[in-house]
């Protein structure tokens, strides 16, 4: 049984091909302005890696903000449900899932069977999302992926006066002009991000194990700052890339569909 999951996000698009519950191949690429273009690129890319073609896929489920615009999927599912499902596949003991995506942040609580029982998402503003980090990294002239490593070397993190993306960017530029070490600014950015996310996590209530999915899960600076702020340990996902959680969840749902289940 071969299934595919595709997650068309605002910044990146992800796709996975799974066979009997195991990942055959996966892909993460930058999203195009049109969701169907991103979906085409992602599915073709991931199929190419396996040598399979679309007709070999028994079922495909789509998710992400562009889910309703993907022409080749059998069903669309919300990214909240898919991330919860994918997180559970990546870490079967997970009960609280923190997902920080490109333009939203969500926290999901799962019951012992892995069913989502509660969720909360951020408001419309970019603060507390991947976009916040992207804007800050650009202002600093570093790669997004460098932020975690940089902040680990910080000795004296700065405090950003505001969690608002626009004001925080102005703050970052001012710190750069004052010749403050780039490591301390990076740590300040990660702390600001973590404190914003922590408010959301606290409001839903934490239950162990806690894991993080989405691209920001790969930023060790945000993860460790979040652990400090919340006073908890966030268990690192090792089974696969945490950024693939949504696509994995979608592929899992595709399997449920094939087995005659209702999703």
């Amino acid at each position: 049984m071969i299934t595919a999951g595709i997650d068309v996000g605002s910044l990146t698009s992800k796709a996975v091909i799974m066979k009997d519950g195991k990942i055959l191949s996966s892909i993460i690429l930058k999203s195009k302005p049109r969701p169907w273009e991103s979906a085409d690129l992602a599915i073709n890319g991931v199929l190419e890696k396996t040598g399979l073609s679309m007709k070999d896929i028994n079922c495909c489920v789509g998710t992400g903000y562009g889910r309703d615009k993907i022409p080749f999927i059998h069903q669309a599912r919300s990214e909240i449900a898919c991330h919860a499902k994918g997180a559970r596949w990546l870490m079967p003991s997970a009960r609280t899932v923190i997902d920080i995506g490109g333009q939203d942040c969500k926290v999901m609580k799962l019951d012992e069977k892995g069913e989502m029982v509660k969720f909360i998402t951020n408001d419309k503003c970019a603060s507390g999302t991947g976009r916040f980090l992207e804007v800050m990294a650009k202002a600093m002239g570093v790669e997004l992926s460098e932020l975690g490593e940089l902040s680990a070397r910080s000795k004296n993190p700065v405090t950003l006066a505001s969690a608002c993306t626009v004001w925080a960017q102005a703050d970052v530029i001012q710190h750069l002009n004052e010749m403050i070490p780039i490591e301390d600014i990076a740590a300040g950015i990660n702390n600001a991000m973590a404190s914003r996310v922590a408010t959301l996590v606290s409001s839903i209530g934490i239950e162990k194990e806690v894991c993080m999915t989405g691209g920001v899960a790969k930023n060790s600076g945000v993860v460790s700052s979040l652990e400090k702020t919340l006073g908890i340990r966030i268990k690192k996902i090792r089974r696969d890339d945490p950024q693939l959680a949504g696509a994995i969840g979608a592929a899992n749902y595709a399997e449920t569909l094939l087995n005659g289940g209702k999703i």
Partner: peptide, 10 residues
């Protein structure tokens, strides 16, 4: 849309 869909699913 996402929240409502997730709510219905949940």
């Amino acid at each position: 849309r996402t929240r409502v869909q997730a709510f219905i699913e949940s």
